[in-house]
Write a protein that binds this DNA or RNA. Structure first.
Lengths: 207, 207
DNA sequence: TAAATTACCATACAGATGTATGGTAATTTT
DNA sequence: AAAATTACCATACATCTGTATGGTAATTTA
């Protein structure tokens, strides 16, 4: 990705991604125009040209719905960059993955979801292994027993969630790891989101 | 899915699926006509109507590329349809179950790949569990030790592949299952493809 | 044997679709 | 201060696209 998108261009790109992942079809110019209240397809046309010029999409000329996303098929691999972790929003945790922002890459998943790569074997018994990619939805409220991603001070963890009377417990499936009890001990504790899926590429392991 | 598709209808449906999973776009009537050598879109039109009538697709009226695959359920559940399994192409095996997993877009499906749902625990030790969705690329030559999907007579299996001097061995990771040795014993044996990824939705298990 | 289905063809048409061109106004860069 | 960029508008147009209608021939079903 070469240049920065403007705010509007970003929104349009997001809309395209949303449509493509949601409906399975990229929108037509008219679809986009309608969604943003443009009276005119030419406006969209020009925005698309700008977005294409900046390298985020490719247009299949003269082809209905011929918008291609030029996302490299790499994954968004977050690396815990300490010091910023506590700040909050998980998307800002990993600034070096963000500035590629791959706003596109992120948004290609279920809306608002993002990815974390699991390190360590604490979830072995939940069938999640080191190297797996977990897909996280930050907008779902975790229920007891579900697996969540959370931030503790400066590290991101993926563990099973249990809410008790006065505390929250984060439990590893692997008995080698003691449960983490959240009360006042952790200055910056935040549930990042619910783990909704796991993906593993076979190139890396088990091959 | 209600009725049987004719041979041609099946081919057209396959083409649609191929286009959709490969290019990301369903074809237009013209695309289909061109591919099959029809001089006329109306021919395609009538085939599509038949396919829709039989319940395999849904048409978004007056919408460019408005062919929807009727997502049967959520997952692509391979049913060993005898008689057709041995025939070859996995896409013809399960015409009614195709394109159904709501695979997060990270798990990008490479062209020509397809999905199988794993049943049984024979790959437990390779971190693949019953219920997991494996992504299979039929165009990659499996190397020793890689995990493949194969068809044996009438059942599809997912196991580790080892080519020996005069035979092929399909090995389960789980010691409870003995290796399958392929020599002449199996009338219809076919390597379907290489397992390139695994996906698991968290709704079902481990929640 | 009659009726239905399948598999094509041709023509016609409205509206969708991408694109080209030219214009205005505001903001940002140089 | 001039030039470029951004963000819209309008009009025009060729082609794409889905659809409707009517026809022929072969095959399958009733």
């Amino acid at each position: 990705m070469s240049k920065e998108l403007t705010e509007i261009q970003k929104e349009i790109l997001e809309f395209i991604i949303e449509q493509k992942t949601g409906k399975g079809l990229p929108p037509t110019l008219a679809d986009i125009a309608k969604h943003f209240g443009y009276k005119n397809r030419a406006t969209v046309q020009q925005h698309l040209q700008a977005i294409e010029r900046k390298g985020y999409i490719k247009k299949n000329p003269n082809l209905a719905r011929g918008i291609e996303l030029t996302l490299d098929d790499k994954f968004f691999i977050p690396r815990p960059v300490l010091g910023e972790v506590a700040a909050g929003n998980p998307l800002t945790i990993y600034p070096d993955a963000i500035d590629t922002v791959e706003l596109p890459t992120i948004a290609r998943m279920p809306k608002d979801s993002f990815l974390l790569r699991v390190k360590g074997d604490s979830l072995k018994d939940a069938y999640i292994f080191s190297g797996d990619i977990v897909i996280i939805n930050p907008n779902l409220e975790p229920k007891n027993g579900q697996i969540v991603a959370a931030i503790l001070d400066d590290a991101a963890v993926v563990k099973r969630f249990y809410k008790k009377k006065n505390e929250i417990e984060l439990v590893s499936e692997n008995p080698d790891f003691a449960p983490i009890v959240i009360d006042k001990k952790y200055a910056s504790f935040k549930i990042v989101g619910l783990v909704i899926g796991v993906y593993r590429s076979m190139d890396k392991k088990a091959v």
